[in-house]
Computed example of a mutant assay.
Amino acid sequence: MDFPKVVITRRIPRQAIELLEQHATVFLWDKEEDAIPQEVLLEEVKDAHAIYTNVSDRIDREVIASAPLLKVISTMAVGFDNIDIKYATERGIAVGHTPGVLSETTADLTFALLMATARRVVEGHDYVKSGKWTSWSPMLMTGQDIYGATIGIIGMGRIGEAVARRATGFGMNILYYNRNPRPEVEEQLGAKYCLMDDLLQESDYVVLLAPGGIGTNKLMGDREFGLMKPHAIFINSSRGTNVDEAALYRALSEGQIWAAGLDVFDVEPTPTDHPLLSLPNVTALPHIGSASIATRTNMAMIAAQNIIAGLLGNELLHIVNPSVYEN
């Protein structure tokens, strides 16, 4: 009997590939630094029963429509705004993701990015390596204090809560804005729910952790950055689409806010001539929020298990569109 076919759009840990090979014939795009070309993806999904994807792929209506045998799509990520969920559901295709497993790792990176930006760690590293450090100076590479400052978290989900826990260790005053208040977080961590405008005006650090999507597209723009303090720092570990990057550039270059730490961008990979990368007060990373070896391996295995469940006609471990089972 022929095995069903799984298209894997990017190199993943070998353990996950071996698990899938027990249940399916695997096509793997194995060029780690390059996304699968659209024409290759469209050709390979023609006889595919499953797509194993990630945040860099657009699994849109065209891709899904090109795959008449498709039963399951699984993304090695929490976010799924790169997938046409509505059309997949109409087609009866289950969509899986990997929530929960990366929360602590992403919170680690988010707080590391906050600290590196506040204390100008990357800038200082480059200063030393370039030979510019010729003497000690009282105001050399001075940054912003973290301990005792006010942090405002936009999006109090699992990652937001994990960042808030880390903030308590630095004696920070924690504000948050969320679609719904989280009384348990307020009780456990001393966080205070407030309107977004109030959060922006009162915070020394604004940390964006909202999910991507239509409701959060360009959530941070000229008006929002204009409400922040001149010494405030903006951190984004969510989605690049949540930020109007031109507005952020204006805020940083004109001194409306002090600095930004960015793990995500509207277009990824970010071109080297991106205006934000020209600013000394921007610390930029290549979307590595969950990039610890243990976490990425765990994510890969969960995504593979979602695929196998879908191929066998079983419920996915973590499903985005549970209504698909109603049909």
Rank of each mutant, 00 (worst) to 15 (best):
D30I: 00
D30Q: 12
D30C: 01
K31Y: 10
K31F: 12
D34H: 13
D34Q: 13
A35G: 12
I36P: 10
I36Q: 06
P37V: 00
Q38D: 14
Q38R: 14
V40S: 08
V40P: 04
L41S: 08
L41I: 00
E43D: 11
E43P: 06
E43A: 14
E43I: 08
E44N: 06
E44G: 05
V45M: 03
K46A: 15
K46Q: 12
A48P: 05
A50D: 00
A50I: 00
A50G: 02
I51T: 09
Y52S: 05
Y52L: 13
T53S: 15
T53P: 10
T53I: 07
N54V: 15
N54F: 15
V55L: 14
V55T: 13
V55C: 12
S56L: 13
D57A: 14
R58S: 14
R58C: 11
D60R: 07
D60V: 11
E62N: 03
E62K: 13
E62I: 07
V63D: 04
V63N: 04
I64K: 02
I64Y: 05
A65Q: 11
A65H: 12
S66D: 09
S66C: 07
A67R: 06
P68L: 08
L69A: 13
V72A: 02
V72C: 01
I73W: 01
I73D: 01
I73T: 04
I73C: 05
T75W: 02
T75G: 06
M76L: 15
A77E: 13
A77Y: 10
A77D: 11
V78N: 10
V78T: 10
F80H: 12
F80M: 00
D81K: 01
D81F: 00
D81R: 03
N82L: 03
N82G: 08
I83K: 06
I83N: 03
I83P: 07
I83G: 03
D84C: 00
